[in-house]
Design a protein around this nucleic acid. Structure first.
Length: 354
DNA sequence: TAGGCGTGGGT
DNA sequence: TACCCAAGCCT
């Protein structure tokens, strides 16, 4: 039996001390001792949902510069927000971001509520984000459990079940590490530890302030935690994307209202959530024309399926756009806010740089 | 409640 | 190549 290494401070205090010494400076993070801006905290939390810090770093400044305060964002057309979001994925976030800004302006005069329950009712704000905003922006004793926290706690206590199956336990153990005097820093410290030290693949245990207390490390089994969820196999689907050109200056675009790529500009296509046999492609063309299939298909991996899309190109002289479609100037294609799959198709057809 | 919902980087 | 993973939310 290996005993925990003796220590003179409690784990929560050790965690905070580590955070004070090693915290990153991030564009959305207030400097030590400065008051955070709730709008910036909220904006960053939405962008960071299932998205890496490195990616958000590249995109956050442009958002903040374009819409420096929540009133600016609420006044902006939704289309502008979606175009600015293009390429970031999970586009419901952008629709909810705009809806949330409007809600805060209308219901709260542009000031975010401080209450976790009230935050939780805002569009796009779930259990994690509500707790994170309450703790980080308003220093309230709320426990925000994200993937980092799940991993840290699962290792610290050698939790055998997948974290989502034992959420109350994870939350309770995370709460035990919070310092009542500094809830916001405690929450960020847990996440920072998961991001910098207690990493998914190769945790840097010698540098970890919690290693004397870590059950997984005592077992020498850090990589066994957290327990993996069983996941469904990712199906492969085939489909077609139709790029209709009018003369040399216009392209046909449509906009799926919801669901996959909802709200985003797109070329007409087969229903991408279905596997369509090649023989059926022509049924889904947006207009009769001499459709020519490009040589190799475009491939794209979504969260829950892999797509192999044949890109068809045709020219038309017709002025009228088919139902649900519109003509967009080719010169503006780069500003239309195309999701990545559609950018790939456009690049494949020589209409955009890859 | 489990599945739908993007994307890019790492191994 | 084929996974895994990232400061999740919604229905």
């Amino acid at each position: 039996m290996i005993k925990p290494r003796a220590r003179s401070t409690k784990p929560g205090a050790a965690l905070l001390a580590w955070y004070d010494a090693h915290r990153r400076e991030l564009p959305w993070r207030a400097l030590a001792g400065e008051a955070p801006d709730p709008y910036r905290v909220w904006l960053s939390e939405i962008m960071l949902q299932q998205t890496t810090v490195a990616t958000v770093k590249q995109r956050y400044a442009a958002f903040l510069s374009r819409w420096p305060a929540i009133d600016d964002l609420a006044r902006a057309p939704l289309d502008d927000v979606l175009a600015q979001w293009a390429g970031l994925g999970y586009y419901a976030r952008a629709r909810n971001l705009h809806a949330c800004a409007c809600a805060v302006v209308e219901a709260y005069k542009g000031r975010f509520p401080r209450d976790e329950a009230a935050l939780r009712r805002l569009p796009g704000v779930g259990a994690y984000t509500a707790a994170a905003i309450a703790a980080i922006a308003f220093d309230q004793p709320c426990v925000a459990v994200d993937g980092n926290v799940e991993r840290v706690i699962a290792r610290l206590h050698a939790v055998e079940a997948p974290p989502r199956k034992v959420a109350p336990l994870i939350r309770e153990k995370a709460a035990a590490l919070m310092s009542p005097a500094r809830p916001g820093d405690s929450v960020q410290a847990l996440m920072e530890l998961g991001a910098l030290i207690c990493a998914p693949r190769t945790p840097d245990c010698p540098a970890c302030p919690l290693s004397p207390d870590c059950a997984a490390r005592r077992l020498g089994a850090q990589s066994d935690y957290p327990a993996r969820e069983v996941k469904a196999p990712k199906p492969k689907r085939r489909g077609a994307i139709f790029i209709l050109r009018r003369g040399d200056e216009a392209l046909l675009l449509r906009r799926p209202p919801r669901g996959l790529l909802g709200g985003m500009n797109a070329f007409p296509s087969t229903p991408l959530t279905q596997d369509i046999a090649a023989a059926e492609f022509s049924r889904f063309a947006p207009a009769p024309a001499r459709w020519r299939a490009l040589e190799a298909p475009v491939t794209h991996i979504f969260t829950h399926f892999a797509l192999e899309a044949t890109v068809f190109v045709a020219h038309t002289r017709g002025k009228a756009a088919p139902a649900d479609c519109r003509w967009a100037a080719r010169a503006n294609l780069g500003k239309e806010g195309l999701p990545t799959l559609m950018r790939k198709a456009a690049a494949h057809a020589g209409l955009l740089d890859a």
